[in-house]
Design a binder for these strands. Structure first.
Lengths: 354, 354
DNA sequence: CTTTTTTGCACAATCGATGGTGCAAATAAT
DNA sequence: ATTATTTGCACCATCGATTGTGCAAAAAAG
């Protein structure tokens, strides 16, 4: 049964077996046979043969002919954090439900690698591309445009293709406000110079978040100084160093921390590993990203959950439009209070033991 | 510059432009031109033209001709947890360094979907397949075998293809021992009926872990009863329900908890969200998976980090062998003490702000 | 100045599926 | 019985790249 010839059956094999022409076999097997007025009995004959011989279409051949592949790509900066991995999870489900094949690849936030990766995907005649968190979305756009590939930006916007991103400004305001509010009934009120923002770089998301942070901070605490903004890039290590430097200088951490992403939060973890519990005794952390474990740390952690489901839903909607307007669609994120375990994309997977 | 014709240049275009035949163009552009004794000057001419016209090979056409695609697949149960997402991250880097294109797909731990997904990958003439955490690796093997595709099991073993998995038995022993040790200087010593295992199902990994757990428990605490094993499947929800049921019954949690995976740990988080801090006052948790945030929870969390780098390295080594022996290769996992922030695959990504 | 060898490349088949076109046989209309 | 339709399918070019083969021109050998 398993050794029945290393070679996969082709329409030509079935053509011989059935006595029909290859084009008839092809039509039967790709469902266009009614349109081609093929007799039902012929169709059945061929379908049975196909099943017997475990025929599956060679998708490269089909793709070559159609100059489409049935592949839908998602370009990610990295896999290894909850924001992007849950995005990948949702993406896959969505693409599958459209009868296509999802392909998820990461490009390490490296503009060169982004372009190279996308070029490769294009060479496979990928049908559509979702560009998430790209450092240089517009160059990626140019590639797609030249190849005639429908594409859309997610998470970080571009200026040449429609973009779906979370409302970073509003989210940052919500988060900052929630952090400050936590100190409402503190013995000593929070001073502006005790509330810092760590992480991020000079991208659209970081800029918006910083703006939201500063606006609310000024509004509620009356003042905000540049010194309180510490963009460390998206690197745990750099973030850790920033915390160490601060601690070295001040002998303690800021009472209020706005951390730009869960990746930066990992920098704080590394710092934590080097210091005793007490260092974090009355600290309040806000993190612009949701991680279920992060939500239960020993100090209050307020998080922002970006609504990847809605973002992707909107993105799929737009990408199906003929000529979607090049504009930025904002999706509202959600404030997550400390000690909250939200459901995620995994919850829609049935568990056979359930 | 960007609108220079929607169509991508082909070797035929370059053939016309250069005055050479398509086969010459092909040879030049795929590097076999020396072997074909093409003049250096012709090669240069064509290479320049290719660059000017932004030629990139149509990989579907190449794949069709070669019946290879340059794609290397990783089949995952799910994306959305740190174990698998860091595996994906490592996998991508490794595949890229081999000059191939990584494709990561998940199949939701659903045997049907696993087979369907693999069938699709095979239809794209994927070159190699890494099968991680498959529920039915042997059926997947049959598909690959029939298509002549090199493949290997990771995380969960099969009986028909070589497998690289972590040493779940030893890992579980280490973890259980570490949990018990934590109670060494407790006022009241830990009793066997206070140490429970939650999560997992009837797969190879769970069975080994349960065995390790029970062996050490019996060894160190003198006794272990079946009641202390609560396999809840790999579902946060089921796990939460199990904890709720236990709590309902006993009015408290077990003092010692062995949690079978980070996914099950999320079930504990959901339980935690419903109960005050005090419920977890003197609890010790061991989790068979590492999650950086999980390591810093308010109670001691001992974790096992499975060595995905070594697993993948070994897997790549094996998959390149001509006829690798069908055996199980065990990779030692690492015990991670509470409040530890390990480096991960992201650390090897250069940060442009660094 | 022949004959042999080497150089440089063109030709054409092939991978598997698709879809426009055309044509004979079956059926219907007159 | 003849013409007009419809049915059912085969033929063939095509998508873009690869590769075995063959052959003329150039270079080397004699």
């Amino acid at each position: 049964m398993k050794h029945q010839g290393k070679k996969k059956a082709t329409i030509y094999d079935l053509s011989v077996l059935s006595g029909c022409s290859a084009s008839t076999v092809s039509a039967v097997l790709n469902g266009t046979w009614r349109k081609r007025r093929i007799k039902e009995s012929t169709a059945e004959l061929i379908q049975n043969l196909a099943e017997q011989h475990q025929y599956t279409a060679n998708l490269q051949a089909r793709g070559l002919r159609n100059s489409r592949s049935g592949l839908v790509g998602l370009l990610l900066p990295v896999h290894d954090n909850r924001y992007f991995s849950s995005m990948a999870q949702t993406f896959e489900a969505e693409v599958r439900s459209h009868g296509k094949c999802p392909v998820v690849v990461s490009a390490s936030r490296d503009p060169q690698e982004e372009l190279a990766t996308v070029a490769t995907l294009i060479s496979y005649s990928i049908d559509e591309l979702f560009i998430a968190g790209a450092t240089d979305p517009d160059s990626v756009h140019d590639l797609c445009e030249a190849a005639g590939i429908r594409h859309i930006n997610i998470d970080l916007p571009g200026t040449k293709a429609p973009s779906v991103i979370s409302d970073n400004y509003q989210g940052a305001r919500m988060l900052t406000q929630a952090i400050i509010k936590r100190f409402d009934d503190a013995a000593v009120p929070l001073k502006p110079e005790e509330l810092f923002l760590f992480g991020g770089r000079n991208d659209h998301a970081s800029r918006e978040r910083i703006k939201g942070f500063r606006d609310i901070k000024t509004e509620l605490l009356g003042h905000d100084s540049d010194a309180c903004i510490q963009p460390t890039g998206y690197s745990p290590n750099m973030t850790q160093k920033a915390f160490e430097a601060f601690y070295e200088r001040e002998g303690k951490l800021p009472r209020g921390l706005f951390i730009n992403s869960s990746i930066n939060f990992e920098g704080l973890l590394r710092f934590m590993a080097q210091h005793p519990h007490e260092t974090f005794a009355d600290i309040v952390v806000g993190c612009y990203d949701y991680d279920p474990f992060g939500s239960f740390l020993p100090f209050p952690v307020i998080m922002i959950r970006q609504d990847t489901e809605s973002m992707l839903a909107k993105a799929f909607e737009l990408i199906e439009e003929a000529r979607p307007a090049v504009k930025i669609h904002l999706i509202q994120p959600e404030l997550v209070h400390p000690r909250t375990a939200l459901k995620g994309p995994l919850d829609s997977i049935r568990d056979i033991d359930a």
